[in-house]
Amino acid sequence: MELMEYQGLVLAYFLILTAIFVSMHQKAGLEKQLFYGSIRAFVQLMVMGYLLLFIFNLKEFHYLILTLLIMAVVSGQMSAKRGEGVPDAFRIATGGIIIGSSVSLGILVAFGIIETEPRFIIPLGGMIVGNSMYASSLSLNRISSELKARRMEIEVALSLGATSRQAADRSLRETVKSAMIPSIDSMRTVGLIHLPGMMSGLLLAGASPIEAVKFQLIVVYMLTSAVSITCMCVSLFAYRKFFTKNHQLVFISSPDLSNRKGRMSKSQK
């Protein structure tokens, strides 16, 4: 099905020209940015389109898995940047994203809700990985600030015979809560405040509204599941990095954290 000819695309570029006209008329000085922005969007999306075309043609299942893994690793890297101060942030984030994504995508596939075709797996996988990345970043960021802020409380608990896990309990709870709130909120407002892009896309492509809604619901549930599993895994992996096996709280500033040492000496060079 050919939805659009390139001819249409070129004509649509007149829309950008109207924006450039507005900018000139209002002396906003955004003409350059608008022009480059529109070209950039064109190039990026075309590249993405051909990439997807290539991936969709790889019918083999293991290529699909490989593609998803690459997405997870790249987003793990992005997320780790948010977790500065958490030792091993990259591995923690990537691990959490992979677990969260594969469980929720796995359930969808295992129950036969979606087929293992690239045209389902890749876009849904991308959404899952992206949302998991967001959850992982929030969790990494929050867990280290929670542990730092509750340092006294944690040491009191340890001194009373709590394990690291028990002492970090409240920090973990707060972390998971704060990382999940955005997806709960978006679940509550979906359809009220915004029509999700995917649903709009289905409607444009000619699906009936009920079909589109059903699919959107699957996506919302899937993302909520992925987000919750990811933030649970990430915070459970991350908090351990702040404790020794003898249930001692170690601080990030402490020079005996080997990781930190390596990073410090690198930056000093």
Binding site: M152, S159, L160, G161, N246, H247
Partner: peptide, 20 residues
């Protein structure tokens, strides 16, 4: 065992640090 040790040796900190 470090947990056993800490149950046998209590600690009072500089600030009361009451738990919520």
């Amino acid at each position: 065992d470090v947990i056993t040790l800490r149950r046998r040796v209590g600690m009072v900190f500089q600030l009361p640090a009451l738990l919520p």
